[in-house]
Amino acid sequence: MKDESMNRRDFLIKTGMVAGAFTLGGCIGGMRVLASVESNRLGQGSTVGYAPPPLKTDVRFAMALNTKVCVGCRRCVYACVRTNNIPRSSNMEWIRVQSLKRGTISLKNTDSLYTKAPLPDRWYLPVACMQCESPPCVKVCPVKATWKDPDGITVIDYNKCIGCRYCVVACPYGARRFNWKKPEVPEGELNLEVPMRPVGVAEKCTFCIHRVRRGRPPACVEACPTAARFFGDMNDPESAISKLIITRRAFRLKEEQGADPRFYYLG
């Protein structure tokens, strides 16, 4: 109930802001002031309020996943759901494990809703936000509610997103989710490091921004029972992930899309 009244106040304030913005529309001077305040607070390359600032600006976080050992058990999905306060029953997990037919990498007739794994004739391809170098979602967002932070993580300002879902449509990996309803997490299971998203905005994998910026690995990497996942700094040639990408047969999904993802699959 308390939540409700908070929401209403929130709404009143925002309605006031809309009205205010329109009044100011007539007054160009006022517009300028507002616009400059806004660009200081939320310009591209700044950081979001809900995560710690980047540790260093010269890191480039990346992930690698060994497809040889992934058994499709979805432990990574469950760990992700818990740490990121993803509602338990809304089918909006940030990681989606695709089950593919052996012998092909074609996405036609993939299945992400399988109930039995591993099966001998399938192989598994977990997909989440690829933290692209050239992210289509950032380019299409009409209001700059999403951008790349200096360490390469694509973030969303949940207080700014207008919920147009253009990014959901534009992501070639289907990685963006939308809050069709108000997300709920059982009391006592809430992770206080991660904000709850409001209804009506987009969200997606953040490489566990609340963990990696404090020096801990993403939850999915930690949870994987077959140690299929690797995480690290691609700018550091000595890091495990840099070496894996060089020495293994690494590939990226849909490279022809030109988004330059930083999620590598190891063959």
Binding site: F11, K14, T15, M17, V18, A21, F22, G25, M31, L34, A35, E38, S39, L42, K139, V140, C141, P142, V143, K144, A145, K160, C161, I162, G163, C164, R165, Y166, F178, N179, P198, V199, G200, V201
Partner: peptide
């Protein structure tokens, strides 16, 4: 019809305040 499609229609003023010109939507 665009307005009612938005998840957060009360934030539509960001179109004026921080338009992203790499988006054809703008």
């Amino acid at each position: 019809f665009v307005l009612i499609d938005l998840g957060r229609p009360e934030r539509v003023f960001w179109f004026l305040l921080s338009p992203n010109f790499s988006s054809i939507f703008v």
